[in-house]
Write a protein that binds this DNA or RNA. Structure first.
Length: 906
DNA sequence: GCAAGGTC
């Protein structure tokens, strides 16, 4: 490797961040021949340079150790494509991109160049993951530009502890180009997709709707990123019915659950329930007893750490990672960004336990673990994930708490230690009894549990395993239930996810990396796509729901995670060398471009979906371009940009220059156009070509009878039909009545320099367009606005528990856009459609089973089937099994029960 | 002004 003793060589070492440079330098300089650790300033005030002497494989080195701050470079479009209106967004799928050092990193770049010139070796101490490898190559690029003769090495380490760092320094390897390639692919795809869709949907929707969640909607960006979109889910509250049964005896109470779970069909549930009520005797059909283990968790990965900290401490994933990072940098825990959930055989697990023996609280557990007599030890079972870079998160240094630690530091360290001790422990053992009964042919089951051995639960205080005792039953035994109730509820909408749920979903779907998931969650909140309530639960906003609904309605599931997940697996293939970078890029971009074009063709769906949630704006003042459409021809005025077909927020069409606002070239179209689409037909007369023709559809009642509703037209000046219809109907321009030069220009420009050119045209807008443009399309958005009140938020008190119920919007085929209130309190299922609430029908539907049985006492069961959905009055059988008289639920006839109803099943 | 990924 190096050429023996001799004169020291100079090595430039680079870490991913300043703190790692400092920590690694500190470790390597801790030897008698280091000459001490010196620090000097670099060009960047954050990234110091540490210096010391160190021997690698007996070769003396003068080490200079500095850092970058994450990625040194970023990928960006070339200047020509940077401005939002400089090109059609679809061009962004093939526009040239470049990787460059952004301005705010140029001082770091300078330091690297200066140090590289003085060095013979470059040692890369970037994090050992794909991103780290990519950053390593960014550093290599900058350094080799300054010194082409560098000998380039990579140090592989995963914990900032002495033995690992020294091992890494003595066992340098070469950087892995394939890992870096995979990241290049990801960066380019993310940029192209993100920028194209963000520009497209922002320009399409921002000015067309009143976005009531912000006061500054000029600057609103409706960004599109694969990691932002997938999380918002549609939901469908659905009413269900279930039969519950309890039995009290001297030994206690058993709660039996219906083995059908729940039914969504009310009639069906009622029939079955009434059969039970008529013959309520329960017969024990099965009694099972068995020992069951409860296994300790797998070794700790990043996602598990985030989920568990959220669940146990209500700590946000962002905060958890911040604290874990601190603990890692101080050497107390291993690298906290890891996918690995199994320990390698080389890891000395006993030693890690030994370190913890002195702890005042869990030290005695650690001692028991190490005592072979206890039988408590168990080699941990892995979860099958291994990123080959880092071990699972585990304690690397003992601490009983440091003076500088916050509460959160204590909590996270405790979690890491207890989790580690738990996963090398035996599972807990419980004895479970399951009793199954039969009532009138329906099966119910109840179970109880006694814990025999707690084992790992002794140290893992965060998990519990409830013991519950149920009375003893014997096979064939008969009894009368104490209660037998028909209870209703509504399925909970899935969007109310906790942060832990969200992280699970993201993990499963392969969204983001372990290090960035919490950032995506934050971005969702920042972009107004989702909100987080006080109980740490997430729900989508109107905007989030509208966008998902719009893309959903287009028919393909653009926002679904599989796209991203597929890309992840392609990236893996690149990093393994089984697919090439170019091959994956080409295939993925082609696919996404097709998706984009399809989405743009179907942009009406996006519009419609937004209209469900937001009021249309009246801001068509011409200061901003409208929805970007398809290109018709090159602009003859500025000669730089394309003229595109656009639909204004008021529904009218126009043709405008993409160079707006610098170029104000515009062609107004008749106000009577209901549909317009650019075709691939090229006009044979107009020049300079090509000028693509537009397929128009006019509103029958707004054009004279002798004109066709369908018309293939040209805006190049040759089309007399179009010219006449503009004269007859006026244009969709709002400025018809006051626009300077109106009535003169076919092609108009309001730039003063161009005002003379207006006289060329012959079309004029003889009529005010106001009588032709419809302003009545408020539709459901208007109702939404009214219902939601001025601030867009509305709530009513929950009729069941009194907590405020937020107004939400259904997104199901049957009830899309319909508003409902649902109680956010945990365990409360109160639900009511907003239109029912407003019409006075505020009887709660779907309450808890307790209130169901209470109200049933009051209401009896004499309700007709029509009342379903309004109340949960259900039949009740008393503790003595006394039958209660009533009437058929299906037809209302008091002479029979539903199970004998002649209308049953119709 | 846009992505996600590093990090300050």
């Amino acid at each position: 490797m190096a050429g023996g003793g001799g004169r020291p060589l100079r090595a430039l070492n680079v870490a991913e961040k300043p703190s790692v440079a400092k920590a690694v330098s500190g470790i390597l300089a801790r030897n008698p021949s280091s000459g001490g650790l010196r620090v000097r300033e670099g060009r960047s005030r954050y990234n110091k340079i540490f210096e010391f002497n160190y021997a690698i494989q007996n070769q003396q080195f003068h080490m200079a150790f500095t850092s970058v701050t994450g990625h040194l470079m970023e990928v960006e479009f070339e200047d020509r494509y940077r401005k939002w209106h400089s090109c059609d967004p679809v061009d962004l799928y093939h526009a040239p991109v470049k990787k460059h050092v952004p301005h705010d990193k140029s001082d770091i770049e300078k330091t690297l160049e200066e140090e590289a010139r003085k060095s013979q070796w470059l040692i890369l101490w970037l994090d050992c993951d794909r991103e780290g490898e990519n950053i390593a190559f960014e550093v290599v690029e900058v350094c080799t530009r300054a010194n082409r003769n560098l000998n380039i090495w990579r140090a592989r380490f995963s914990a900032l502890i002495d033995r690992e760092i020294h091992y890494a320094a003595q066992h340098l390897i070469r950087p892995n180009q394939l890992f870096a390639d995979a990241v290049d692919v990801r960066q380019e795809i993310d940029l192209r997709i993100g920028a194209s869709f963000t520009r497209f949907q922002t320009m399409l929707l921002r000015d067309a709707f009143v976005l009531d969640f912000t006061t500054d909607d000029k600057n609103v960006i409706l960004s599109y990123g694969p990691c932002q979109f997938w999380e918002i889910q549609s939901h469908e509250p659905e009413e269900f019915w279930t039969i519950n049964c309890t039995h009290n005896s001297e030994e206690g109470t058993a709660t039996f659950n219906w083995m059908r779970g729940h039914l969504f069909d009310y009639t069906c549930a009622t029939i079955l329930y009434e059969m039970c009520v008529q013959e309520p005797t329960a017969t024990v059909t099965n009694v099972r007893q068995q020992e069951k283990p409860k296994y300790p968790p797998h070794p700790l990965s990043t996602i598990e750490l985030e989920k568990r900290a959220s669940r146990y401490f209500r700590m946000s994933s962002e905060q958890t990672m911040k604290v874990a990072e601190d603990l890692y940098q101080a050497g107390f825990i291993s690298y906290p960004r890891t996918e690995t959930d199994c320990f390698s055989e080389r890891t000395d697990l006993h030693r890690i336990v030994q370190d913890q023996q002195a702890h005042p609280i869990w030290g005695s557990y650690a001692q028991r673990l190490l005592d072979p007599e206890s039988g408590l030890w168990r080699n941990p079972s892995g979860g099958g994930h291994d990123d080959k870079a880092h071990p699972p998160i585990h304690p690397t240094k003992f601490s009983s708490g440091e003076s500088g630690w916050s509460q959160d530091h204590h909590k996270v360290y405790e979690l890491v230690v207890r989790h580690f001790l738990a996963c090398v422990s035996q599972p807990a053992i419980g004895a479970e009894t399951t009793v199954e009964i039969d009532i009138a042919g329906e099966q119910f089951s109840a179970s109880g549990r006694v814990i025999i051995a707690k084992n790992y639960l002794d140290v893992y205080r965060f998990e519990t395993w409830g013991g519950s005792v149920i009375p003893t039953y014997t096979y064939g035994q008969q009894f009368t239930p104490t209660t037998l109730t028909l209870d209703s509820g509504v399925t909970r909408p899935p969007p109310l996810l906790s942060e832990a749920d969200l992280l699970s979903c993201m993990d499963k779907a392969g969204i983001g990396t372990d290090a960035t998931m919490h950032d995506h969650i934050k971005k969702l909140l920042d972009r107004f796509y989702a909100t987080k309530d006080s109980s740490m639960r997430f729900s989508p906003t109107k905007l989030g729901e509208a966008l998902v609904m719009g893309y959903d309605d287009m028919g393909y599931e653009l926002w679904k995670p599989y796209l991203r997940a597929a890309m992840e697996s392609d990236m893996k293939a690149v990093s393994m060398g089984t697919k090439s970078k170019a091959e994956v890029l080409e295939a993925c971009l082609q696919q996404m471009k097709a998706c984009f074009l399809d989405a743009r063709l179907n942009k009406g769906k996006l519009f419609e979906a937004m209209a469900v949630f937001f009021e249309r704006s009246n801001r068509s003042n011409g200061n901003e371009p409208y929805a970007i459409g398809d290109v018709l021809r090159r602009c003859g005025l500025c000669q730089e940009s394309d003229m595109v077909l656009r639909r204004k927020p008021d529904g009218n069409f126009m043709v405008g220059c993409l160079g707006y606002p610098q170029c104000r070239n515009v062609v107004w179209l008749p106000g009577s156009v209901s549909e317009a689409a650019v075709t691939s037909n090229i006009c044979s007369t107009c020049s300079p070509g090509p000028v693509y023709m537009i397929q128009f559809k006019f509103r029958r009642l707004e054009i004279p009878p002798n004109y066709n509703v369908d018309h293939l037209g040209c805006i190049g000046g040759c089309d007399n039909t179009l010219r006449q219809l503009v004269e007859i109907c006026g244009t969709g321009s709002r400025n018809n009545s006051n626009m300077p030069g109106r009535g003169q220009g076919h092609t108009q420009s309001s730039s003063s320099a161009q005002s003379n050119s207006r006289s060329q045209g012959a079309w004029h807008t003889a009529h005010s367009s106001s009588s032709y443009t419809s302003q009545s399309s408020r539709g459901r958005s208007a109702q939404t606005q009214d219902a939601a009140g001025e601030d867009g938020e509305s709530s009513i008190p929950c009729a069941s528990c009194g907590a405020p119920c937020n107004l939400r919007t259904a997104n199901t085929p049957a009830n899309r856009g319909r508003k409902f209130y649902s109680c956010q309190a945990q365990g409360c299922n109160f639900f009511i459609w907003e239109d029912n609430a407003n019409s006075g029908g505020t009887v709660p539907r779907g309450s808890t089973s307790r209130s169901a049985s209470t109200s049933s006492r009051r209401g009896g069961r004499g309700r007709s089937n029509q009342s379903r959905g309004r109340a949960n009055d259900v039949a009740f059988v008393s503790a003595t099994g006394e039958p209660i008289s009533g009437r058929c639920f299906v037809c209302g006839d008091p002479s029979h029960f539903a199970n004998a109803c002649p209308n049953r099943g119709r």
